[in-house]
Design a binder for these strands. Structure first.
Lengths: 146, 146
DNA sequence: ATAAATTCAGAGTAAAACATCTGATATACA
DNA sequence: TGTATATCAGATGTTTTACTCTGAATTTAT
């Protein structure tokens, strides 16, 4: 069950993190990604194309082709990816869905949610893909490491 | 766009808040609710039935029938409603969707998200429907008040 | 009793999200 | 230059969520 982000977005985060574990410049095929991450082949293809279009990845066709990061891993934040796939809608709407809720007209949790939302936003902005990859490199992450 | 909770859940929160604005024991019809809140008639009917089944509301058929709170407004927390409609899945899964992520095996934002999640949970548990209703009672909330 | 207003219950429809299929296009390398 | 292996692109299928329709059953008031 996805919480805040769509499945596409989660897949994107996982795939980009995987790419960041590879030597710089090395291309990785969709086949390898779907095999290691358990993401549907064609679905992932679409998502990666999207990230190429947005400039976060680069791609190359043909044998030895594949995908690689379009920027240094430390320059890609989690928010870059979230924004590219899901947009930044979670930063604006009332968390409880009250249509009239706004800063001049707050619902009972407006302020409280505002703090949490800002915290989550900072979490996404302050973490980059290099850090994500480092956390995933531990021996327990057999699925991703090998 | 819904953020964390389903549309059903948002509608439920809005409807129950509206009911809390009424004098204790007074029944309110689906017709009035959908008119004032802009929620689809039959869809809301289903949601309210569900809340009756879960014991949060009571209902009565026939003319002068309708729905009312099943408990005192201050005894119904936001979490009661969220749990009744969406379950409490948001308290368990990795926010970025990493399958291997756990407390023994955390992703790079695991701890950070854990704090935010706990904060959001507390926000839902510590706010009751009476407080929600009070916030909605301000003159700006024409749509809900009148 | 009868009529009107309401919830209740189950099936049906629509739209969005998730996923697959098929064929074209590019590229490396034998 | 041909063949294999990739991505690219568009159409199609599936599942879940959102929403609607229809006809009961219940209750109030005339």
């Amino acid at each position: 069950m996805s919480i805040i982000f769509s499945r596409q977005c989660e897949y994107a985060l996982q795939a980009v993190t995987y790419l960041a574990l590879k030597p710089v410049g090395e291309k990785t095929s969709i086949k390898e990604l779907t095999k290691k991450l358990g993401i549907p082949y064609h679905f992932l293809g679409k998502i990666l194309q999207d990230l190429v279009y947005k400039g976060l990845l680069i791609s190359q066709k043909g044998p030895t082709g594949g995908f690689a990061l379009g920027l240094p891993a430390r320059d890609i934040t989690l928010f870059h990816i979230v924004e590219a796939i899901d947009g930044s809608g979670f930063t604006t709407n009332c968390v409880l869905g009250f249509p009239e809720c706004s800063s001049t007209n707050p619902c009972a949790v407006h302020e409280s949610w505002g703090r949490h939302r800002e915290g989550i936003y900072q979490m996404l902005v302050n973490r980059n893909i290099a850090e994500m990859a480092r956390a995933m490199k531990k021996p327990e992450y057999a699925a991703i490491r090998k």
